[in-house]
């Protein structure tokens, strides 16, 4: 499973999109964290995380997402998630992530909110 995790990064003028594919566990979370760190170091303050191809997460992976949220909050940035399954969205709500991260149905909606 872990070997199947992939992500791609698409950079725009003032935001970036991270599209994930596969199980967001400790390894998947670390991959997202590394990509986000690099973008934030480059000065990117707005991130879109597209989970269209990630329909399984665990709390270890989400804990790493909390680190990413912390770093985005520290630079007064914004982080948007899109294409979450109902259960992942419910999980984010239970954990309170939605106090610090925005959730959109589609990537287009997330991008429009950042425009």
């Amino acid at each position: 499973m872990s070997d199947l995790f992939n992500l791609t990064v698409e950079e725009h003028a003032d935001y970036a999109i991270i599209r994930t594919e596969g199980y967001v566990n400790n390894l998947g979370g670390e991959r997202i964290g590394e990509a986000a760190d690099q973008l934030i170091e480059q000065g990117v303050k707005k991130l879109v995380l597209n989970f269209e191809k990630s329909n399984v997460v665990n709390s270890i992976g989400i804990s790493i997402l909390i680190e990413v949220i912390e770093k985005v909050v520290d630079v007064d940035g914004r982080i948007c998630f899109c294409f979450l399954t109902k259960t992942i969205e419910k999980t984010f709500n239970i954990m309170g992530l939605t106090q610090y991260a925005e959730i959109y149905e589609t990537e287009a909606d997330a991008r429009a909110s950042l425009a």
């Binding site: 709390s59 270890i60 989400i62 804990s63 790493i64 909390i66 680190e67 949220i69 912390e70 909050v73 259960t87 419910k90 999980t91 239970i94 954990m95 309170g96 992530l97 106090q99 610090y100």
Partner: peptide, 24 residues
């Protein structure tokens, strides 16, 4: 019981499992 505001600043960001199980 974990709290997101505390976890954001804490070194240890884990400890959510039981809370999730109870809510799901």
């Amino acid at each position: 019981k974990p709290d997101i505001t505390q976890k954001l600043k804490a070194e240890y960001k884990r400890g959510w499992g039981l809370m999730l199980i109870e809510n799901l």
